[in-house]
């Protein structure tokens, strides 16, 4: 039962992990390339969620300093890291989509299994 209460306390982390596994599953099993790219984004986003959740404190505010006020701020570091992470994910997505566009031009399909079929026929 200790484990169960632990999970309920850390439900944010648990959701992130489940999202990660869903993303990984979709990425590795679906044949559609667009779905693979979307799954890649789900996977990255789940880790961003995990990171941002690490930085959170109950009752804290966004780290924009107001002079003189006595406020608790959230940890700025994970948020800052994830800004970089989001840009990285965007870049990878853009490149992956350009590859899909080109592959679609050659084979008229986005499905990996169909492409393998077409290639084996040649």
């Amino acid at each position: 039962m200790e484990i169960l209460t632990g999970i309920i306390d850390n439900y944010y982390y648990m959701v992130a992990i489940i999202l990660f596994v869903i993303g990984m599953y979709t990425m590795l099993t679906h044949a559609n390339m667009i779905k693979k790219v979307i799954a890649m984004n789900i996977m990255d986003t789940s880790v961003f969620l995990l990171f941002v959740a690490i930085g959170y404190t109950h009752g804290a505010q966004a780290p924009i300093i107001k002079e003189g006020a006595d406020i608790i701020y959230v940890n700025p570091l994970p948020g800052a890291l994830m800004l970089t992470g989001i840009v990285v994910a965007v870049s990878v997505t853009a490149y992956a989509l350009s590859l899909v566009v080109k592959i679609y031009r050659f084979y008229e399909t986005c499905d990996y299994d169909e492409i393998c079929e077409i290639r084996s026929l040649e």
């Binding site: 990984m24 990425m27 590795l28 390339m33 693979k36 890649m40 996977m43 990255d44 990878v92 490149y95 992956a96 590859l99 899909v100 592959i103």
Partner: peptide, 11 residues
């Protein structure tokens, strides 16, 4: 090949 590489390295 590079799509496959990209997906696996993104994983």
């Amino acid at each position: 090949a590079s799509f496959k590489y990209l997906i696996l390295s993104a994983m």
